[in-house]
Amino acid sequence: MKPPVARNRRNTVVGVVLTAIMLFPVYWMVNVSLTPQSRMRKDPPDLLPLHPTFSGYRAVLDDQLPYLGTSLLIGLGTVAVTLVLSAPAGYAMAKLHPRGAGAVGLLLLIAQMIPGIVMAMGFYGVFLELGVMNTWWGLVVADSTIAVPFGVMIFAAFMSGIPDELISAAKIDGAGVWRTFRSVVLPVSRNAIVTVSLFSFLWAWSDFVFATTLDGGGTMKPITLGIYKYIGNNNQEWNAIMATAVVASVPATVLLVLAQRYVAAGVTAGAVKD
């Protein structure tokens, strides 16, 4: 069945229109971030940023820069913790046949079902007791609980696809289990590493639940709280709020452009079984 050229073109047009509708809120965010405050409540609203102002973005530079730094730090910390914990575990689950692997797998699955708000309340109690509220590494620990079970799952799924011959070859060459893991398994698992890093970074960057509950009121806040405080304080400055939102969306957009296939892989993994 060969679709005629005309139908192909019509599909493309429909696809572009649907995408435009879907992304309208994103466009609107950018549009509002460029709208001067004086025209914000104009009726009808400016559908195009014909009088763009960058005052919203200047406000971001003035107020939010340290928060962006904190979020970056927390994101990278979460990626590191997640990779260090989940890559070896994934390898063990996929190739080393540990006794009790089934139970660990089930626990990891259950862990992903626990609502973040419940974890946050538990962490709140523990952090208060230990006096580690409002620390960036406290948030790294909390945020990694979202990503570690997912990471183990992805690594296990990926590494079970590595041919056994490759691993036994390394063994014959005299490599121990750790050497094999480091020099053979990890290098061919690049795709899984990228996928897990990407998602753990994005989740940590976007986290709001842990940030708001484990915030002791200090100065070191992630950007999500920066936006939240903006909404609370100056309810009217929507161009500054939307400018911050645009800046906070940059990592997601950059990662999508650079690593689109890894995103799709991460969404699908686990949902569609072999």
């Binding site: 992304l23 976007s206 999508l256």
Partner: peptide
């Protein structure tokens, strides 16, 4: 189409 899913929730919610 993936963009809405990847944006931080606070961004989508405030938009």
């Amino acid at each position: 189409f993936l963009i809405p899913w990847l944006l931080p929730l606070i961004v989508s919610a405030s938009t």
